[in-house]
Amino acid sequence: MKTMTNEEFYAGLLDLPKPKYPFPDTIHPDFQRLREEYYNWIDTEYIIHSKQAREKHKEHNLCDIAARGCPFLKSIDDLLPLANYTANGAMMDDYFDRCSRNEMYEITNRIHELLTGNDPKEPSENGIFHLYWKLRQDALRCDFPEHLYKRFVKSVDRVFKGYAEEKTYYRVNTIPPLPVYLLIREDTSGVQPYCDYVAMQKDYRQIPDEIFDHPHIKRIQTLCSLLIGIHNDIISLPKELHREGDTMNIVKVLQQEYKITIQEAYIKALELHDDYLKEFLVLQNHLPSFDNWKNMIFEYIQDLGIMVSGVYAWHTDTVRYQNGNYVEGEYTNEK
């Protein structure tokens, strides 16, 4: 059997099957207003980025992920903290692409202090940290229940710690084993904070903490993280095939794990994705009793599915992963 080159694979990518979801795809009615906030963040806060990088980020419309992931939030005020986390997190990940594991942990710790209010002082300069300080102020203004906000912040911590751990593999251009990939990708997909934020919609704020802590619900949230992580890898694969250091991709991982071609690994990645989707649906349809909460929990899980579908819609609509449109890391350690 002839081995397919990366170039041949790239050329035939459009003909390969794609992820599909049985959930509706919608978007928040205030998404255009949210974009204006997002453009303002880039112009006023992201001065650390070059002008070229800032203009590319505007074209990516990263704030649309929040508008698609949580389309049932009551107002743009409720959307702002999630959009801030999403856009700032993604642009921050781009900017610090070349930083070390230890440097990312230092950044994570600083963000944690700002989000928790342990450091209540407003940063004196605009930028990444000022935006996270602003996230907390917006969260306080939109009546974010304290117990949900604490969950959200804890989940954000996990995302950034995942960013730190993947640096170990990026910096030495090494593909991780599958179990390590799955562990890290669950965090770096950035989805757990979204699972927490979906609870800000409708009447889900009333759901007791012990239900959110139930293993059944935790597993469904993990599946959301893996579904989005894998479909993101599938969409970004053409970019990551040709960039040294982009090793945290499920297709590359499976190719190494099973010693197969890129095309075979792609199909295997899609099969893994579809297995996770089937598990999600089985768990949704076989919930524990949850007493009087069962109907609301079923709807919450349905809205998690809408979140997954919405994020995928953004991934397939954005120019972020097209050749020439991604943002290279601009951070350099000058110490």
Rank of each mutant, 00 (worst) to 15 (best):
P193E: 03
N323W: 03
T222L: 09
W41G: 01
I76A: 06
G190C: 05
L148A: 04
N126L: 12
I306L: 00
I65N: 02
K150N: 10
Y331Q: 02
Y169M: 08
K252E: 01
R158V: 05
K167A: 13
E244Y: 00
S236R: 09
Y258A: 12
F144S: 01
L277G: 01
L223R: 02
A199S: 14
V319S: 09
P145K: 06
E166Y: 07
Y300Q: 07
D30Y: 09
R98C: 11
Q322M: 07
A139Y: 05
P145V: 09
F160Y: 15
N84L: 14
T3E: 14
A67Y: 01
D291N: 13
L79T: 07
G324P: 04
K278I: 11
E125T: 11
P208S: 02
I207W: 03
L79K: 07
H112L: 14
G229K: 07
Q137D: 13
T116I: 04
F72C: 03
L223V: 08
Y170V: 09
I262N: 07
E257H: 15
Q201H: 03
E264T: 09
G127L: 04
S189A: 15
H231I: 07
L283E: 01
E165L: 13
H315P: 10
H60C: 02
G305D: 03
D213K: 10
K268E: 14
D138T: 14
N325T: 00
E7M: 09
L183Q: 15
W293T: 04
L241G: 07
R98D: 14
N126F: 10
Y105S: 05
G12K: 13
V153Q: 07
Y169K: 04
I301W: 03
E240Y: 06
L226I: 12
Y95M: 05
K134F: 14
K167P: 03
Q206W: 06
T188K: 01
T247R: 00
I260V: 14
Y258H: 15
H57T: 01
S236E: 05
N40Y: 13
Y163C: 06
Q256S: 11
I128V: 13
